[in-house]
């Protein structure tokens, strides 16, 4: 399953919407943090990584124009907003900044000295995994606005938190069957959300 970016948010940020910048920060900060963690960075370095990546995106206006000079040479792709390639930019920027932090930590000169966690294949695999988690988390957030509060609560309590169906039904004053209906509706909606993201 290919996971893509919330393009509407990027469009709003591109138009200079301040609130959307905050949303952008809140949306992508955990992703950057988790990628940094997988790269073996310390929590302190991870905060620095978030700041550096965000700064680069803000200051170099990455979202409104594509600057090939900022992308590592070993990553080849063509940025096409219509095809939702923002994640490749982000990946390249995070990896670049993580290398810089390693360099700062140990004064590494040679790329061969980069820790195993940041090596290309490992980084790619970790990135894909974190990106997938990011999209699922976003889908769950979007689900909240697409179904009724009671349906969302039933799904969250029963499926996500793993509480016994009878407890959830009693707590929400629903029948067991209704909890199952809510679960099935939410699963179908989440799949639609992810499918929709894939189209963008």
């Amino acid at each position: 399953m290919a996971f893509t970016t919330k393009k509407s948010l990027l469009a709003k940020v591109r138009s200079g919407d301040d609130i959307s910048w905050t949303e952008f920060y809140e949306t992508y900060r955990p992703l950057i943090f988790l990628v940094g963690k997988d790269c073996g960075l310390t929590p302190f370095e991870n905060e620095e990584l978030v700041q550096q990546v965000m700064s680069e995106i803000f200051q170099k206006d990455i979202l409104s124009r594509y600057n090939p000079d900022e992308v590592p040479k070993d990553i080849t792709f063509t940025y096409d907003p219509a095809k939702g390639r923002f994640r490749f930019f982000l990946k390249a920027i995070i990896r670049n900044q993580a290398f810089k932090l390693y360099h700062k930590r140990t004064n590494l000169v040679n790329l061969d000295d980069i820790p195993e966690e940041a090596a290309s294949e490992k980084f790619d695999a970790d990135w894909d995994e974190v990106w997938k988690k990011h999209i699922l988390t976003q889908a769950m957030e979007e689900l909240r606005s697409k179904v009724q509060a009671e349906t969302y609560s039933a799904f969250e309590m029963y499926a996500v938190q793993g509480r016994p169906v009878k407890d959830v039904a009693a707590f929400l004053n629903l029948s067991v069957n209704s909890v199952y209906v809510a679960k099935n509706r939410c699963i179908a909606t989440i799949r639609e959300i992810i499918k929709d993201l894939e189209k963008k």
């Binding site: 905050t22 929590p43 700041q51 699963i187």
Partner: peptide
């Protein structure tokens, strides 16, 4: 799918909150 969802939410919920004013500072900087 639910298991993946649970794993994702757990991982993202474990990310510590940002230092105070981090986002605002970034905006000022930009």
């Amino acid at each position: 799918l639910v298991a993946e969802l649970q794993e994702s939410l757990l991982a993202f919920n474990q990310v510590p909150a940002p230092p105070a004013e981090a986002a605002t500072a970034l905006q000022r900087k930009s």
